[in-house]
Computed example of a mutant assay.
Amino acid sequence: MLNAFDPRQVLSVTMILFAIIDIVGSIPIIIDLRQRAGHIQSEKAALTALVLMVMFLFVGDEMLKIIGLDIASFAIAGSLVIFIIAMEMILGIQVFKEDDHIPATVSIVPLAFPLIAGAGTMTTLLSLKSQYATINIVVAIMLNTAIVYVVLKNVKLLEQLLGKTGLGVLRKAFGVILLAIAIKLFRSNSGL
């Protein structure tokens, strides 16, 4: 079961990654970066995020083995990170601070990493490996990268359509989804 393509798993993982990447909730940050830098290369940002996520999905296990950790321990740690990110989204607080240094091009840093493929995303990817087939995770990563690309290309239009209130509601809704995911990951990997 963990080696087969399963559209239900793809849908589940796609929704989880969509919530953790939170590209829609990041629209205000992306708009700010675009204003400060002048231009964002959507293709470059999406492709870089895709490569980072897929690489971490495959090499993350080996990195853990080198430092003596198992997937369940990493999944529990990941569930705590996801829990904190969810609380940030729901309560409108900021626990994780981002670097304010903006280089001439923001397509790679801070947009692709750490905004899109950041610590929360990487932790989630390894956590998901304990419950979902790798092929389904890869397909979900590609689907999310496509969504990220579309959002980056149309960020101004989306801002006008959703408005400030709409963006706030989406961010809080995905925060609640992430909170439930964090609790599920914790329970399934801790034996509770």
Score class of each variant (00 low, 15 high):
Ile67Gln: 08
Asp99Gly: 04
Met87Asp: 04
Ile116Pro: 08
Ser127Val: 00
Thr134Leu: 10
Ser127Arg: 00
Gly60Phe: 12
Ile147Met: 03
Asp70Cys: 07
Ser130Asp: 05
Phe74Asn: 07
Gly118Asn: 06
Ser130Lys: 06
Glu62Ile: 15
Gly92Trp: 05
Val106Phe: 13
Val139Ser: 07
Glu62Trp: 15
Leu64Met: 15
Gln94Cys: 10
Leu126Glu: 05
Phe83Leu: 15
Ala146Ile: 15
Pro103Cys: 02
Pro114Lys: 07
Ala117Thr: 00
Ser107Asp: 15
Ile82Cys: 08
Ala119Leu: 15
Ile71Lys: 12
Thr124Ala: 15
Val95Trp: 07
Ile85Ala: 12
Ala75Glu: 09
Ile93Pro: 09
Leu111Pro: 06
Met63Thr: 10
Ile116Thr: 11
Ala77Phe: 05
Gly68Asp: 01
Val148Phe: 09
Ile137Met: 01
Ile66Gln: 10
Val81Glu: 02
Thr123Arg: 08
Leu143Lys: 08
Thr145His: 01
Gly60Tyr: 11
Val138His: 01
Leu115Arg: 01
Ile108Lys: 06
Met87Val: 13
Val139Glu: 02
Ala86Cys: 07
Val148Ile: 14
Phe83Ala: 12
Met142Val: 15
Gln131Glu: 10
Ala112Asn: 12
Lys65Tyr: 13
Phe96Leu: 15
Ser107Val: 07
Thr134Pro: 06
Ala133Asp: 01
